[in-house]
């Protein structure tokens, strides 16, 4: 198991380096940091001094190596826009995004999986048809429209829920949480639905398709022929066999939720990383953009590792193949 994790981490290194190269390239090709930092009036001497100070006169590989070493330590320099360390800015914003992503993912899984099982088992019931129609809306309506519609209905017309912000947050060390206050929880509801709805419908449709597939298999027929109760057949034998593809998609979708919360965060003015990113793009705040890019790559790499480990937990056939490879 340890060897497997190690090999996965080694495989992830080239990915991270490539992403690092791309974010590093942004510094060189998206605007001139020296010009940005010096402003309108400067002398040639000031300019040269800054170039030396920033190390921009050194060869490309030296600069890149420095960038990678700094990045590995969470050091991305100062934000052009806010003149504060990038790492600090991201650490400040990350809890908001992660809490939102957690709620959206929980919603998608806890509602999407049972709905998928139900629609797979009772293909022709009117409730299944309703779920499927509803899922088409979730898949096809763009996120920003869903967010705006929800705000219109629940904030403007009904006045039940706040239309923007995180509500009151409680600081637990450096982590700010909205889970501990009533207004924080209320503020999470609409953005979570907005962010999770697409994933919910996607997971529901995936589980449904997998269930239909699995229910046709011989081992399900045999489980029925052995007289096992429906509950054991459906949730024990069938659902577990749908999990491998569902875990894959759910993992990638969790990454997508974190990475692409940008739209939802913009609609709800949610003070998370996505909003920070979009503001940084507007201001050509390259250090923040570069750090965000690397962070998201890291999130995907970690999620992929977790997904791979979950495969082994779910499917014993994979455990043996790996054992055989190790034995060879």
């Amino acid at each position: 198991m340890f060897a497997f994790i190690l090999s996965r981490i080694l495989q992830a290194l080239p990915v991270m380096l490539t992403v690092a190269l791309i974010s590093f390239a942004m510094f060189a090709y998206v605007g001139d940091p020296v010009a940005i930092m010096l402003g309108q009036d400067f002398t040639e001497a000031q300019r040269d001094a800054l170039v030396r100070e920033l190390g921009l006169d050194q060869p490309f590989f030296v600069q890149f190596a420095k960038f990678v070493v700094n990045a590995a330590q969470g050091e991305f320099g100062l934000s052009y826009r806010l003149s504060r360390p990038v790492a600090e800015l991201i650490a400040e914003r990350a809890p908001a995004t992660l809490e939102l992503a957690f709620c959206a993912a929980a919603l998608a899984l806890l509602v999407g999986v049972p709905m998928g099982v139900y629609t797979g088992l009772y293909r022709n019931s009117w409730l299944s048809r309703f779920f499927l129609t509803f899922s088409l809306i979730g898949v096809s309506l763009p996120t920003f429209l869903i967010g705006i519609l929800l705000i219109l209905i629940f904030s403007v017309w009904l006045g039940w829920l706040p239309s923007f912000g995180r509500g009151d947050v409680v600081q637990l060390g450096w982590w700010s949480t909205g889970f501990l206050t009533w207004s924080g929880i209320r503020a999470l509801i609409l953005p979570s639905i907005t962010l999770g709805l697409f994933q919910l419908t996607l997971i529901m449709r995936l589980v449904r398709a997998e269930m239909l597939e699995v229910l046709r298999t011989d081992y399900i027929k045999f489980a029925r022929a052995r007289g096992l109760p429906n509950r054991a057949v459906h949730f024990g034998h069938a659902l577990k066999n749908t999990l491998v593809p569902v875990i894959t998609i759910a993992g990638l979708q969790l990454g997508a939720i974190i990475a692409f919360a940008i739209v939802t965060e913009t609609v709800f003015q949610w003070p998370g990383m996505g909003l920070l990113f979009i503001q940084s793009v507007n201001a050509a705040d390259i250090p923040v953009m570069a750090a965000y890019l690397l962070l998201i790559a890291l999130v995907f790499v970690v999620i992929n590792l977790v997904v791979d480990l979950l495969y082994y937990a779910v499917d014993p056939r994979l455990r043996v193949e790996r054992g055989a490879v190790r034995g060879a």
């Binding site: 081992y219 045999f222 034998h237």
Partner: peptide, 13 residues
């Protein structure tokens, strides 16, 4: 009941 293909009649998990 006994089915035809023992490779597919047992739940792999």
């Amino acid at each position: 009941a006994i089915f035809q293909d023992p490779l597919t009649t047992l739940n792999p998990l």
